[in-house]
């Protein structure tokens, strides 16, 4: 079943077109990797799907579970089951992880017609999820991302994903800046999340992460378009030959 259908998506920032006609269908149970050089539009795609208003969609359509995604405010997208693990998670001093995540989870649960979790049930749940990403429970009382190292921020994103249990997760360069141990922890968290009724888009510059999160399909983004798609071997190929040839192929 198609969970996400992107059709001819064009988007620009400050009048400059970044995405120039993306077509992509992601079915439940699938993991898609989107690779490409810096400036190819990978992160813009993730931000547009999240609903960041810095980007203007100038053409095209995005259907999520058959619904028009682009008309939904960001919070509604999250409530409907979309989660973005950001490349640069924002620091929020004064708001504890615990408070933030409980507010988020209960909003989402309400939307799904589930009862809100009380403090005790919530604590049980988060402790279980914390173990998944090997984080210290003391971290719950710390302000969201404030004073976190790069690796802690990335792990926090995956932890949030594990708690919020989205249907579609988009990981935006979650591997960047992670050492190999942290990378394995993150990949393990992600792999546990894979089920038949969920889907995932992994945006990455390097093939490295895909050794641990094995994709069903790999797409290469260049100059705002998908220029090549293939199976998991495409990632290995790119790792050896680089993006240069592909970019030339498009501009020629």
């Amino acid at each position: 079943m198609a969970l996400l259908e992107i059709k001819n998506l064009h988007a620009s920032v400050a009048g400059k077109e970044i995405l120039s006609g993306i077509d992509l269908t992601v079915n439940t149970g699938e993991v898609h990797a989107i690779m490409g050089p810096n400036g190819s539009g990978k992160s813009t795609l993730a931000q547009v799907l999240a609903g960041r208003d810095l980007y203007q969609v100038t053409d095209g359509q995005v259907l999520y579970d058959g619904k028009d995604l682009l008309n939904m405010p960001p919070e509604e997208r999250a409530q409907e089951g979309i989660f973005i693990a950001f490349q640069y998670p924002v620091e929020i001093p004064g708001v504890s992880n615990m408070y933030f995540l409980k507010a988020a989870l209960n909003t989402i649960r309400k939307r799904r017609g589930l009862e809100e979790l009380d403090a005790m049930d919530f604590l049980t749940l988060v402790k279980e999820k914390l173990a998944l990403v090997e984080m210290d429970p003391a971290f719950l009382n710390r302000p969201v991302n404030a004073g976190f190292s790069g690796g802690e921020k990335k792990r926090n994103e995956i932890f949030q994903m594990a708690v919020l249990e989205p249907r579609l997760a988009i990981l935006d360069e979650t591997d960047s800046g992670l050492d190999i141990d942290a990378l394995k922890i993150v990949a393990n968290g992600v792999n546990q999340f894979r089920t038949r009724d969920r889907a995932m888009i992994v945006v990455t510059h390097y093939q490295r992460l895909l050794n641990y999160i094995v994709p069903d399909q790999v797409h290469v983004l260049a100059n705002g378009r998908i220029v090549k798609s293939g199976g998991k071997d495409l990632a290995l190929e790119l790792d050896q030959s680089g993006y240069a040839g592909l970019e030339e192929a498009v501009t020629a």
């Binding site: 405010p73 620091e91 004064g94 507010a103 988020a104 909003t107």
Partner: peptide, 24 residues
């Protein structure tokens, strides 16, 4: 950016503003 981050986790815009103001 912080408002958007909270929204992206399902928290409504008004509630996000309140949360950040209270945090201040």
């Amino acid at each position: 950016e912080a408002i958007f981050y909270l929204q992206s986790r399902g928290i409504g815009k008004e509630q996000a503003r309140d949360l950040l103001t209270y945090a201040f």
